[in-house]
Simulated scan of single mutants.
Amino acid sequence: MRVLVTGACGFVMSVFIRRFLQEHEEARVLALDVGEPDTAWSGHLADVAGRVDVERCDVRDRDRLATLFARHRPETVVHGATVTLVPEWEREDPGRFLDVNVMGTAAVLDAARRAGSVGRVVHVSSAAVYGAGDPGRTEPQDEDTPLEPDDMYGVSKVAAELVARRFAALYGMSVPIVRFTKVFGPMERPTSARTLMSLPYHLARALVAGTPLAVTPRTLRAAGDWISAVDVAAALGLLCTRPDVGSVAFNLAGGAAVPVPRLAELFGVEMVADPERAVADMDPALRSGKDGIYDVGRAARLLGWRPRDLAQQVGEYREWALAHWTPETLADPGGAT
């Protein structure tokens, strides 16, 4: 199987590539990214590097996409390229989200349908499509929850989903959509498209450094529906290989609200309320929409996928962090990758 992955040097896509190639010895991946792979990415994929072809490509460049699709003849595409939410970016250049996340998606889908070799495009969306949601809602949200984005990133993701659905209808393409949020795990690191790190990332750093983690006081009253990138990668692999998954959306999440103190306990890290030194801030009032709990029943029914126990997910990430980071590399701004 030949799989083309956009945004390949990013956090979740790098975890997916390694897992997919480890599980499918006959597979080969064409990794597209707008930038050069960093040393962390190259090291992460060292054991499967012989089956990874790396090409620089801006997903908005239709001519470049056409050339690469024709040369490599992929059978499946996982479209993960995106510009993620940074509030400053939204204010400074809101059009960037639409340009990359919407027009880039259209360009990838058009290249896929013209290639003649692609049978499926897995479109990576986001729980940002749900926006703030209904503040009074307490039950898990399924994929039919109204899409009411409240930032330009979410707006761009809703628009990209609509583009994906239209391509599926127009050309008979299989374009399943995945929505996830609060993802953590190996290979999370600052990049040109991602600058806001997850709470588990900060907890992992504190674990390696052997120091408490300073957060805002209200963060200690917050909760979240966290999911490991390894579990997300497993679902993406199923979407690449399972027949007849259609072009529907899938929530990928833990399916339960986990209080922040419990998350810290799983990491074995002490948290201290210190607004002056806080590296993380979560609002405990945000418990719905993109910050809510997700119903993952559709993925269970159609893919046979369920998230592992959170303790197992965190334990795996702890082991990875301790194996790849040291207090010395954490002290170097460019070292903890």
Score class of each variant (00 low, 15 high):
R137S: 12
R137C: 14
Q141L: 15
Q141H: 13
D144F: 15
D144P: 05
D144M: 15
P146H: 09
P146R: 08
L147M: 13
P149Y: 15
D150R: 11
D151K: 06
D151R: 08
M152N: 07
M152K: 04
M152L: 14
Y153P: 03
Y153M: 05
G154R: 15
V155C: 10
V155Y: 15
S156L: 15
K157A: 10
V158E: 11
A160D: 12
E161I: 11
E161Q: 13
L162T: 01
A164M: 13
F167W: 04
A169M: 11
G172Q: 03
G172F: 07
M173R: 05
M173Q: 09
M173P: 03
S174M: 09
P176C: 02
T181W: 08
K182A: 14
V183I: 12
F184A: 02
P186W: 02
M187G: 00
M187R: 00
M187V: 02
M187K: 00
M187D: 01
E188L: 11
R189W: 05
P190R: 12
S192T: 06
A193Q: 04
A193T: 11
T195A: 13
L196H: 11
L196S: 06
M197L: 15
P200Q: 07
Y201L: 10
R205Q: 07
R205S: 02
A206M: 05
A206P: 01
L207G: 04
V208L: 03
A209W: 09
A209F: 09
A209G: 06
A209R: 08
G210I: 09
T211I: 10
T211A: 11
P212R: 01
L213I: 01
L213H: 00
A214G: 01
V215P: 00
T216C: 00
R218C: 04
T219C: 00
R221E: 10
A222Q: 00
A223E: 10
A223T: 04
G224M: 11
D225K: 09
D225E: 03
I227M: 07
S228H: 12
S228N: 09
A229H: 10
D231N: 08
A233S: 08
A234P: 06
L236Y: 02
L236N: 02
L239I: 00
C240G: 01
C240V: 10
T241H: 09
T241N: 07
T241I: 12
P243C: 06
V245F: 07
V245N: 05
G246V: 05
S247V: 03
S247P: 09
V248D: 12
V248M: 13
A249S: 14
L252K: 07
G254Y: 03
G254C: 10
G255V: 07
A257N: 04
